[in-house]
Simulated assay, not measured.
Amino acid sequence: MNLRRSAAAGLIAVALAVTGCSAAATPEASSSSAGESPAAAEPTPEQLDLTGEWSWHEAPDPEQTLTATITTDRIEIFWPSFEVGEEGDAFSGTMDSALYWAGSFTPPEPGEDTYTFISVGDTEAMQKSLLASSETEKEFSFANGGISFDLTIQGATKTLTLTRD
């Protein structure tokens, strides 16, 4: 039972850090194509690549930040690791990062530099995580080098923006 209380205390600390910040997290989009003349031979549009490791770099404590792994068509977001229990407790130590979101998505088409997508949650994977979202779908938006999404904890919602590591 002490482990459960310690894990809950750790989650509450991260939740307070997430919901306690009031600064806007989503940067405004800018247009760089205004005034450019069309090229004689249009280059082949590049595929927007979202794959890789991402983090919430605006976290109050850089050691306690959400991280994400994105593959071609899947996104997984994790809560940070945190200490549980007290020294000498049978259940003391470090709790590994916990899954917050796992879901699939359709990758962007070539030529897109902003992209909004709905990720369909992997409910089977998220049911195994005490700290996972209960949503079945989640909207994500990529713009200006960041992926934004809404995170809701106990009725408080904050838009977080992940940036590539």
Rank of each mutant, 00 (worst) to 15 (best):
N2L: 15
R5W: 11
R5D: 15
S6M: 07
A9H: 03
A9N: 13
G10I: 10
I12F: 12
V14N: 05
A17K: 09
V18C: 09
G20F: 08
S22M: 09
A23L: 10
T26W: 05
T26E: 14
E28Y: 11
A29D: 14
S30W: 07
S30N: 03
S30M: 11
S30I: 13
S31K: 12
S32P: 01
S32F: 02
A34Q: 14
G35E: 11
S37M: 07
A40R: 10
A40Q: 12
A41F: 13
A41Y: 13
E42K: 15
P43K: 02
P43V: 00
T44L: 14
T44R: 11
E46Q: 12
E46R: 13
Q47G: 08
L48W: 04
L50R: 07
G52L: 13
G52Y: 15
E53I: 01
W54M: 03
H57K: 12
E58L: 12
E58N: 14
P60I: 03
P62S: 02
T67K: 14
A68V: 04
A68S: 10
A68P: 03
T69A: 11
I70V: 15
I70S: 07
T71D: 14
D73V: 00
D73Q: 02
F78S: 12
P80A: 00
S81R: 02
G85I: 04
G88R: 14
D89M: 02
D89Y: 04
F91H: 12
F91K: 13
S92Y: 15
T94A: 08
S97Y: 06
S97L: 05
A98D: 04
L99F: 14
Y100D: 04
Y100P: 02
Y100G: 06
W101S: 05
S104M: 05
F105N: 05
T106V: 05
P107K: 03
P107T: 08
E109F: 12
P110W: 10
P110R: 01
G111R: 06
T114K: 02
Y115R: 01
T116P: 00
V120D: 11
V120L: 06
V120H: 07
T123C: 04
A125L: 04
K128I: 03
K128C: 01
S129Y: 00
S129D: 05
S129A: 15
L130M: 10
S134M: 01
S134C: 01
T136P: 00
E137W: 01
E137F: 09
S141K: 04
N144R: 09
G145C: 12
S148P: 01
F149Q: 07
F149E: 04
L151P: 04
T152R: 10
T152K: 11
T152I: 06
I153Q: 05
I153D: 05
Q154F: 09
G155A: 13
T157Y: 06
K158S: 07
T159P: 02
L160R: 02
L160A: 01
L160H: 03
T161W: 07
T163W: 06
D165E: 14
D165P: 08
